[in-house]
């Protein structure tokens, strides 16, 4: 029984690709067979985050146009043997794949994998429509920022219009201290507008940037708070009931510093 997820957001730069890479690695760490499909044709990044760029031979475009069977285009991850990437072309653009082609491909992938994760491009145009076509579940990634929440709201409306009803939410790059001070939207504020089942609250974490540059998602780093949040999301996707993380409060000295205006 395999599931097809699409990771989408509307707005760019909120962490769709980072989320896809982390969830993919996380599911593979649990021994699941996972394939990550990059549909951001022309602006592909998922291969970089996984450190697989130099191993790409064929792309999604070659597969949907029937030049090679999809197995030839798959790139296996260096460390996680059950994790595969189906990269897309950096040369072509979004018009190179249509929803029917991707849906057909996903039907084939379903037979061989436990999880198919589709990394959706930003925007609501052709690329988005193609990416969501075959998905059973949509994971909407947003940030505690009015523009990201506004776009997530629009995307949820578009998903409903495409009759995708199983929608889950991940709120990325939360800065707990700012939320506490009332300088950033809280989870309640976001839930009030989006009212979609939340499966993850990921704190902003410098390790995400450094691990991205190294091509190794932060979910593998034990001490990373974001990594812990992603591990929790993976657990929830596998049906476990995991409470949301509580973030460490600002310490006494930090508060004293603030009070003294330092």
């Amino acid at each position: 029984m395999s599931e097809v997820f699409v990771i989408t957001s509307g707005k760019g730069g909120v962490g769709k690709t980072t989320t896809t890479a982390n969830l993919g690695v996380g599911l593979a760490m649990r021994g699941k067979k996972v394939v990550l499909v990059d549909t951001d044709t022309g602006l592909r990044n998922l291969d970089l985050l996984l450190g697989l760029e130099n191993r790409i031979m064929y792309t999604l475009i070659d597969v949907v146009e029937g030049r090679v069977p999809y197995k030839k285009a798959l790139v296996r991850h260096k460390k996680h043997e059950t994790l595969y990437l189906l990269p897309t072309s950096q040369v072509k653009d979004k018009s190179a794949v249509n929803p029917e082609q991707l849906a057909k491909l996903c039907e084939e992938l379903r037979k061989d994998f436990d999880y198919v994760l589709i990394d959706c491009p930003a925007g609501i145009e052709q690329g988005f429509k193609t990416a969501i076509a075959a998905a059973d579940v949509a994971i909407v990634v947003t940030m505690p920022e009015i523009s990201a929440v506004r776009d997530a709201d629009k995307i949820i409306g578009e998903l409903a219009r495409a009759e995708k009803t199983d929608i889950r939410l991940i709120v990325n790059r939360i800065r707990p201290q700012m939320v506490e001070k009332g300088d950033m939207m809280s989870m309640e504020d976001i839930d009030d507008i989006l009212s979609v089942k939340c499966i993850g609250q990921v704190p902003d974490d410098e390790l995400v940037v450094t691990s991205t540059n190294r091509g190794e998602p932060c979910i593998t780093i034990d001490k990373s708070l974001a990594g812990q949040a992603y591990r929790n999301i993976v657990g929830r996707l596998c049906g476990e009931d995991i409470p949301f993380m509580t973030f460490p409060k600002e310490g006494f000295f930090a508060r004293l510093k603030h009070a003294l205006g330092m």
């Binding site: 506004r150 709201d153 949820i156 409306g157 409903a160």
Partner: peptide, 21 residues
């Protein structure tokens, strides 16, 4: 949700929210 629009000549009852946009 944002981007959705209802236009009608009659009155409207919404059982839900009307989000920004």
């Amino acid at each position: 949700r944002g981007g959705q629009e209802v236009r009608t000549q009659s009155s409207v009852l919404v059982c839900g929210n009307v989000n920004p946009g």
